[in-house]
Simulated assay, not measured.
Amino acid sequence: MATTATASASWEELTLKVKWIGNEYTVRVCADDTVGELKRRICELTNVLPLRQKLLYPKLGSKLNDDSLFLSQLPLNSSLKMTMIGTTEEDLLVDPVESPEILDDLELPKDEAVDIKDMEVNKLKLNRRIHHFKIELQNSCRQGKKLLVLDIDYTLFDHRSTAENPLQLMRPYLHEFLTSVYSEYDIMIWSATSMKWIKVKMEQLGVLDNPNYKITALLDHMAMITVQTSSRGVFDCKPLGLIWAKFPEFYNASNTIMFDDLRRNFVMNPQNGLTIKPFRKAHANRDSDQELVKLTQYLLAIAELDDLSNLEHNNWELFTEDNTKRRRH
Rank of each mutant, 00 (worst) to 15 (best):
R326P: 00
H329C: 07
Q204Y: 01
R171A: 09
E312V: 10
N285K: 09
E101T: 08
K81L: 15
V27I: 15
D153K: 03
T4C: 10
E203K: 09
S161P: 06
K117S: 14
I102S: 05
N127M: 09
M170K: 12
E13D: 10
I21Q: 13
D111Q: 12
H131A: 10
D289M: 04
A113T: 12
S140I: 04
P96S: 09
R232H: 15
L169P: 10
V18Q: 05
P109R: 03
F247L: 08
K110A: 12
K125G: 13
G86P: 05
L64M: 12
E249L: 11
K39A: 02
N139W: 02
T216P: 04
Q204W: 08
P100Q: 07
F177N: 07
L174T: 14
K199Y: 00
A5L: 12
L274G: 04
W190Q: 05
E304D: 12
D260L: 05
S140L: 09
E203S: 15
L137D: 07
A9H: 13
P96L: 07
V234S: 04
K238I: 06
T6P: 00
T296W: 03
D104H: 06
N23W: 04
D306T: 11
E249A: 14
L318V: 14
S230G: 02
Q204D: 14
F279P: 08
L103T: 13
V27W: 06
I302H: 05
T3S: 11
L80S: 03
L295V: 04
S62W: 04
V121R: 09
Y57M: 11
V267I: 15
F259K: 02
L174G: 05
K238Q: 11
K277I: 08
K246A: 15
K196C: 01
E44K: 04
D186V: 10
T229A: 07
M188P: 00
K246G: 01
D118H: 12
C237S: 02
S288E: 14
K134F: 02
F157K: 01
H283I: 12
F279Q: 06
K134I: 09
C30Y: 08
L167M: 11
V97W: 03
R326G: 00
S309N: 07
E37Q: 13
V18Y: 05
D95R: 10
H329E: 13
V114N: 11
C141N: 07
L218H: 02
E176H: 07
K125F: 06
T4A: 13
L240N: 14
P96G: 04
M222T: 15
N212S: 13
W11T: 14
M119P: 00
F259D: 03
A223W: 04
R286N: 12
L106Y: 05
L74S: 09
T193L: 01
K146R: 14
S288P: 00
N310G: 07
L299G: 05
K294D: 13
L205Q: 06
T46N: 02
Y154H: 15
T324I: 03
S180N: 11
D33Y: 11
S79L: 13
E90G: 00
Y213S: 08
R160N: 13
D118F: 10
S183P: 01
A245H: 07
N210V: 02
P278W: 09
L169I: 09
G241K: 01
D261W: 03
